[in-house]
Computed example of a mutant assay.
Amino acid sequence: MAQQAIGRVQWGDLTFGPGTPYSVTAVEGLDDLPDIRSEDVERPGQHGDYTGPDYTGARIVQLKLGVRGSSPDDLRFLTLALRAATQPQRQPQPLQFLDQDTLVWAKVRKRSIPYDAEYLWRLGDAALEFYCADPYLYGLEEQSASATAYSPSAGRTYAMTYPRQYGSAGSSGRISAYNGGAAAAYPVLRLDGPVANPAIEHVNGGGILTLDATLQAGEYLIIDTRTRAVLLMGSSPRRTWVRAGSVWPVLQPGSNEIAYRGSALPGALGQQSLLTVSWRDTSL
């Protein structure tokens, strides 16, 4: 359960907070609302503005640490370990607030480890600034749910003996996804074949994402609804498979229902396509 005390903070292989030589003395920017990027326009010849939707800019998180060594040499070792862990990065990494059930994707942008001769025998301090281009706060646990596709009957199979045997009429594929945050969550979708023309409907929102594609048995497609990347076998771009007019599913706070439909492939009777939806509780 999340708690008010910051507690432990995980960055790479280093943990700050209780039980570690790095105490967390202050945190700024985690619960703050990032700067708003508004789309307001002045009303010509009138008082006030026309107001549009508000979006946030990047999130800046600042950590202040107390560093406690058992000796001057141990303090130096701790300082060098902190320096090594806060090098410039190509891609964001998870900054995890373990006891607050919160994760942000961050890059180190500033690091200050001052030298204070008066206290340097075994005590020091440090300040870190993290830049989060993605301002969302995510739950630590990635949740997922799966369902097989509903598809019309692939045809009836008749036996040469009586009574006649009929093929399956298909089954309904539904997923219930609960977003425990306060902002919309962008799920990652994985489709496993065999299936033709798969469609993913966000029942609550009324939008449908349809793909003009065929996946054979053993093939899969990864769809990132935030970046809108569509990757066959997780690497080959297939964005053109998305049918014009499709609506990308977004999980609103609370309960969401996803329906998965598709057509069975000839000769694939009895083989079922699978949709897996993965998401984290999301807030701003």
Rank of each mutant, 00 (worst) to 15 (best):
W279S: 08
E39N: 07
S172V: 13
Q143L: 14
C132Y: 01
R76H: 15
A26V: 01
L75R: 02
L231I: 08
A196V: 11
A199V: 11
V9A: 09
L120F: 08
V242W: 00
A244H: 02
R8S: 02
Q89T: 05
L14Y: 07
D99A: 04
G124R: 13
L82R: 03
G173L: 05
P114C: 01
G167I: 03
G207K: 06
L232K: 08
P114F: 00
F130R: 03
L128A: 10
A185D: 07
A229H: 10
I222N: 03
V61H: 00
R174E: 15
Y136V: 01
G218L: 01
I60M: 03
D101I: 06
S151Q: 14
T148F: 12
W11Y: 01
E129M: 09
Y138T: 04
A169R: 06
P194C: 05
Y138E: 00
Y162N: 06
P114S: 08
S153H: 11
A185K: 00
K107H: 03
G180I: 01
S278N: 07
A127F: 02
Y138G: 03
S112H: 14
N197M: 14
H47K: 03
S176I: 10
G69N: 00
S38D: 05
L30Q: 00
Q272R: 12
M233Y: 09
V27Y: 05
Q272N: 15
Q165P: 00
T225I: 00
L284V: 13
G155W: 15
I223M: 12
R68E: 07
S246E: 05
R239I: 15
Y22P: 05
D54C: 07
L65E: 00
M160I: 13
A217S: 11
S246G: 02
Q216K: 04
W105F: 07
V24A: 13
H47A: 06
L75K: 01
T210G: 10
S263L: 13
D116H: 10
P266Y: 15
E142N: 11
A244F: 11
G155A: 14
T210F: 06
L191G: 04
D99W: 13
S172M: 13
A2F: 15
A84P: 02
A149G: 13
T20D: 11
Q4K: 09
T282D: 10
I258N: 08
G48Q: 00
F130P: 02
R59W: 05
P163A: 10
P92N: 04
L78Y: 10
L14K: 04
P44S: 00
D134G: 02
Y260T: 15
E118T: 08
E42Q: 01
Y22C: 07
Y131S: 03
G69T: 11
A127M: 02
I60V: 12
P237D: 09
A85N: 01
Y186M: 06
S112T: 03
G52V: 12
A2G: 09
A264K: 14
W241I: 01
G254C: 13
P21K: 11
Q96P: 01
D13I: 15
S246I: 04
W105K: 05
Y220V: 09
P194S: 12
L189Q: 01
Q46A: 02
S255F: 11
G12Q: 00
Y136A: 06
S172Y: 06
R190L: 04
S176Q: 11
